[in-house]
Nucleic acid binder design. Structure first.
Length: 191
DNA sequence: CACCAGGAATGTA
DNA sequence: TACATTCATGGT
């Protein structure tokens, strides 16, 4: 029985837009990321090739709404250079290692890119996921890789399922909020 | 006014 | 390994 439909959680026109969004969304509300991406699109810079050849301060100005703009403009340059000579024909684990060597790409960002931009079967773990595991007492450890393995060992290895599962956890966090009524059963945010 | 958002790098012990 | 600090804008 299908209860939930697709969440369309990572809306993007292109693969590059997903990768760019993965950097810009670090510790930032998605609403602000949308503004930054819109700015990039307006001037035709929402692609890794264009970003690689654009002046640093131009990128900074365009992505300011998403915060941390000095760091993130550098990170976008770094990841744009990485994908210039990248051969996608590699196994997921080596791909992951390569991504983690890029300055500005940590565990969550690397896995988000693998899953959402390249459809690799990797389960994304974020702060919400850990709180969910903690409060529902699903698993004894909150360490990134252990939580990730917990889900990957207990779910079918299905890319679309991983995408939707992560989206639903985030949606759960957004749905229940202490600022709204009926917040006592919140499994993620409210203590 | 404080707190948080679809984190990661860097420094300290 | 385990924390603390820094980065910065915008919404609530």
């Amino acid at each position: 029985m299908k209860v939930f439909g697709k969440q369309y959680w990572w809306p993007a026109d292109t693969q590059d837009e997903i990768i760019i969004g993965a950097i810009l969304t670090q510790n930032t509300a998605w609403q602000n990321v949308e503004k930054a991406i819109e700015n990039l699109k307006k001037v035709g810079l929402c692609s890794l090739d264009k970003i690689r050849n654009a002046p640093q301060n131009t990128i900074e100005d365009l992505i300011k709404p998403s915060g941390f703009y000095k760091q993130k403009s550098l990170y976008l340059k770094e990841i744009a250079n990485f994908f210039k000579d990248f051969n996608e024909n590699t196994d997921t684990l080596n791909f992951r290692k390569s991504l983690l060597n890029i300055k500005g790409v940590g565990l969550e960002t690397a896995d988000s890119i693998l899953l959402y931009a390249f459809s690799r079967p990797i389960f994304v773990v974020d702060a919400y996921t850990k709180r969910f595991v903690e409060r529902k007492k699903l698993f004894y450890s909150l360490e990134y890789h252990k939580v990730q393995q917990f889900f990957m060992h207990n779910l079918p290895q299905d890319v679309e399922l991983y995408k939707e599962y992560h989206a639903l956890i985030v949606k759960l966090a957004k749905t229940f909020c202490r600022k709204k009524p009926n917040c006592k059963e919140c499994p993620i945010r409210c203590a």
